[in-house]
Amino acid sequence: MQTAYKKYFRDNLPHIWCPGCGNGIVMGAFARAIEMLDYDKDEVLVVSGIGCSSRITGYLDFNTLHTAHGRALAFATGAKVAEPRLKTFVIMGDGDAAAIGGNHFIHACRRNIDITTIIINNNIYGMTGGQFSPLTPKGRKATTAPYGNIDRSFDIVDLSKGAGATYIARGDVFHAFRLSYLIAEAARHKGFSVVEAVSTCPISYGRHNKFKGAADMVNYLKKRTIALNRASRMNPEALEGKIITGIFYESEDEEYCDAFERLEASVKKGARK
């Protein structure tokens, strides 16, 4: 298991990410998830947007589509509807998914199309050097929030739930193997699934927010994360500032490509009459 996932990488490493970046951990978790799922590499399509996270598609040995900022889900939706046989994954960053791509995100949730979406949340725009995103917590600093961020942030779990996603989970880069499990479960789920992967950006976020380095940030995640089943037994005061992880929501509804098949069958039937 430790090395088996290497076959899912192209031979173009090393990657471009800064030392201590969480993206590599998520990429490893993703590759292990594919190993668990035992998918044929030729049948896997991985789509990304723009930003640090989006470079993952360049390193993975699948069918890979590196799109434009915020638009990964729009491209992936077209590809999946046209070729439903493809196991389709979308990997986005927090600004990518929740700011510029926010509209595509909620509508993909609404349609319940069978795409597994991983949002790598490092709380910042990393590629451009540390500007606040819709997932930067209020009060934190960024190059465009030098006096502290006054914007309220999204909660990806609540947002996905409200928009209609049928599988919603949150993991983190300290619990990397658990993250693999959450991604694999999301892929097994038929319908639109969201996995928020809470990550770390020591260079563009940590330095502005009193973190001493990469290890300090990962330790922060270790201390602050709490599993959903434990959290459910705790009172709100005790949960203040905690990052709750686990599978938050799972439900069944008609999948979008199945709805197309149903529509096409009824159109054909109508034509015969």
Binding site: L45, L65, A74, F75, G78, A79, K80, L86, N103
Partner: peptide, 12 residues
Amino acid sequence: ASIGAIIGASCV
């Protein structure tokens, strides 16, 4: 989204 989706469909 419209043009994104048609590019995605053309890629496959």
